[in-house]
């Protein structure tokens, strides 16, 4: 899956799902999105990182929900029913990303993906693959696998 994803990014046309976090726009490859659902209350996990909102039940599977805003170093989200959880598949894991709203589905050429400008905060930059300029907007492409970087101790993949 990840390979497919890489290939499609390298290919001519990429379909991306764009979403908002505060005033900024981000996007992920549509091939890694499994589902988009409204906010449902999560079950907090003991001793989890602050950006892990907890776990939810998605058709019988238990999967974690990451507050992407908190993960990128923004103000943590205060989820309302209008918030959206984007269910993504990364490697063999399925996780939910809590975002403000889904805004668009984009089709962009690989060549239009630019390198991340050297101004963003170090933390935010480490989760971005590049930026896309579109109709005067700047949309950052999220590198999903680094959102979920395994931590060395091996306990809690999102820690």
């Amino acid at each position: 899956m990840t390979q497919l994803h890489e290939q499609s990014v390298a290919g001519a046309n990429n379909e991306l799902i764009a979403f908002r976090l505060g005033q900024q726009e981000f996007c992920v490859d549509i091939m890694s999105v499994r589902d988009i659902r409204g906010w449902t209350p999560t079950t907090p996990l003991p001793h989890s990182e602050h950006y892990v909102k907890g776990v939810i039940n998605l058709r019988g599977a238990v999967l974690p929900v990451v507050d992407l805003a908190a993960r990128l170093g923004f103000t943590p989200a205060d989820p309302t029913p209008r918030h959206v959880i984007i269910i993504t598949q990364v490697g063999r894991q399925t996780i939910g990303l809590l975002v403000d709203a889904v805004s668009d589905i984009l089709t962009v050429e690989s060549s239009s993906i630019q390198a991340t400008p050297n101004v963003a905060s170090e933390l935010a930059r480490s989760f971005m693959k590049g930026v896309i300029a579109m109709e005067g907007r700047m949309i950052s492409l999220i590198a999903l696998d680094s959102v979920l970087t395994h931590n060395q101790s091996g306990s809690g993949l999102l820690n």
Binding site: T42, T43, G60, A61
Partner: peptide, 26 residues
Amino acid sequence: KSLETNYGHVFGVAAATILGDGRVAV
């Protein structure tokens, strides 16, 4: 239900389950 599949091991938690109301409980 396994927590390890999509997340990882959590201290003090053996596994998860889904209760009658659809919520996850550890």
